[in-house]
């Protein structure tokens, strides 16, 4: 699998989050994703970037344009060194929230992408990775 573009940006503020959304949109356009698929991955990225900021205390986002043979896709990885998620199964449930939100961030963004993986270690942080293929 070839990685065509590889960008890393910090997620420390709301401005970074807006910049992150724009970068993901650019990459999705670059990879030729349809408007609906662009919107889905940008929305998922927005949810996860907010999680990195709010729950992880900031972190970084890595954005990759992937070519797997004829398949083209966009991969986004969010990493923080926050407190971690004690119970991932619970956190992945629709409506589960620790901050009074809607509890759709993780579960909802999973539905918007083709691949979703999450790793979290208590006290060490959380990494979430998503891919949307064309």
């Amino acid at each position: 699998m070839a990685v065509l573009r590889d960008e890393l940006i910090g997620l420390r503020s709301m401005d970074d989050m807006i910049k992150a959304r724009q970068l993901v949109r650019d990459c999705a356009i670059f990879q030729g994703l349809s408007l609906v698929d662009q919107t889905k991955i940008v929305t998922a990225a927005s949810e996860l970037a907010r999680n990195t900021l709010v729950h992880g205390g900031g972190g970084e986002m890595r954005l990759q344009a992937l070519n797997d043979g004829p398949r083209r896709g966009v991969k986004v990885i969010f990493a923080d060194r926050g407190p971690g998620i004690p119970n991932i199964e619970l956190a992945m449930k629709d409506g589960y929230t620790t901050r009074g939100g809607l509890g759709l961030g993780l579960s909802g963004s999973k539905r918007l992408v083709n691949e979703f993986s999450i790793e979290s270690q208590s006290g060490k942080g959380t990494t979430v990775s998503i891919v949307r293929w064309k």
Binding site: T39, L102, L104, G108, L112
Partner: peptide, 14 residues
């Protein structure tokens, strides 16, 4: 509301 936004919102669960 744009169609792509509507589709995404419903899939998001909202």
């Amino acid at each position: 509301m744009r169609p792509a936004v509507a589709i995404t919102l419903v899939e998001l669960g909202l």
